[in-house]
């Protein structure tokens, strides 16, 4: 990070965020069992950076993403967008927040409604936020389809998810996320269901979008190599605790935390010595 950016207000800030899931046991057993998914997480994401959140399954990385797009509320702690606290937003304020913070989900086979055409899916954010009229919306959808590499846009307009491949579906999901021109996008393992050759093309698309629209990304992944390729800074999370944060290349070259070291060592590589 350059110094100039360090002086700016971060676009997203998490302060001491804790998330507990309490599962009420039945009346025969006493008390509540609670699982701590996130434990006192503090993070600051600067404008225009791609911030990587690296962790294994069950580490809590997806919960952070869901909290940021308000699918869940933290048990404790404060979330700030552009310096303003955003906990427990309701109604118009929540809608306004959501037009600024969007998400790309993990599984493109699950995140598109099978009964809606591609156009209906991508147009939804415009419709629910009452932006434009039928003609301008249509234009915007076609324009967005072409930005995400589904061109000519007219050709994909009336198709349905089952007529697209996994990679194309994820591009539709990207189009839905960027159509409102949000400031911040959470990408939750967007390529974990894809082949490597297709995934790298999607990474390229995300990089292009960042450049063109100056968007900020939180990239959630279990793949350190992908995080290194895509991200400016990364945070490594284990059991709901962030164990290390820093510039991606530095963290990977010179890890400080024992867990990070273990993670890096376990990464299969092309060493033919055994």
């Amino acid at each position: 990070m350059t110094e100039e950016q360090n002086n700016q207000t971060p676009i997203i800030e998490l302060n001491g965020v804790t998330k507990e899931y309490s599962s009420k046991k039945n009346f025969l057993s006493k008390g509540e069992a609670s699982i701590i998914a996130l434990n006192n997480i503090s993070l600051a994401i600067q404008k225009k950076e791609i911030f990587g959140l690296v962790g294994q399954s069950g580490s809590g990385k997806t919960t952070i993403g869901r909290i940021l797009v308000k699918l869940e509320e933290p048990t404790k702690g404060i979330i700030k967008l552009n310096g303003k606290p955003t906990n427990n937003l309701k109604g118009r304020l929540l809608k306004n927040y959501r037009s600024k913070v969007q998400m790309i989900f993990q599984d493109p086979y699950q995140s598109l409604n099978p009964h809606l055409s591609i156009a209906e899916t991508i147009i939804e954010p415009l419709v629910v936020n009452r932006i434009g009229n039928t003609a301008t919306r249509r234009e915007k959808v076609i324009e967005t389809l072409e930005i995400v590499g589904l061109s000519p846009g007219q050709e994909f307009f009336h198709r349905y998810p089952h007529q697209l491949s996994g990679g194309q579906r994820q591009r539709v999901a990207v189009a839905r996320a960027i159509i409102l021109d949000p400031e911040f996008i959470v990408a939750d393992e967007p390529t974990s269901m894809m082949d490597a050759t297709i995934a790298i093309q999607l990474f390229q698309l995300l990089l292009d979008i960042r450049k063109k629209f100056k968007m900020t990304f939180l990239f959630i992944t279990h793949n350190l190599a992908a995080a290194k390729y895509l991200c400016d800074r990364i945070a490594v999370i284990n059991n709901g605790v962030i164990v290390e944060t820093g510039i991606a290349d530095k963290v990977i070259k010179n890890p400080q935390n024992a867990y990070t070291k273990k993670l890096i060592l376990a990464q299969p590589g092309f060493n033919f010595k055994n």
């Binding site: 699918l71 809608k95 959501r98 409604n113 099978p114 629910v128 936020n129 839905r176």
Partner: peptide
């Protein structure tokens, strides 16, 4: 709990919609 419903919520859709 399917992601496409959550995606729609994130897009700002109302419960009715």
């Amino acid at each position: 709990s399917r992601p496409f419903i959550e995606a729609s919520r994130v897009a700002g859709a109302s419960n009715f919609r």
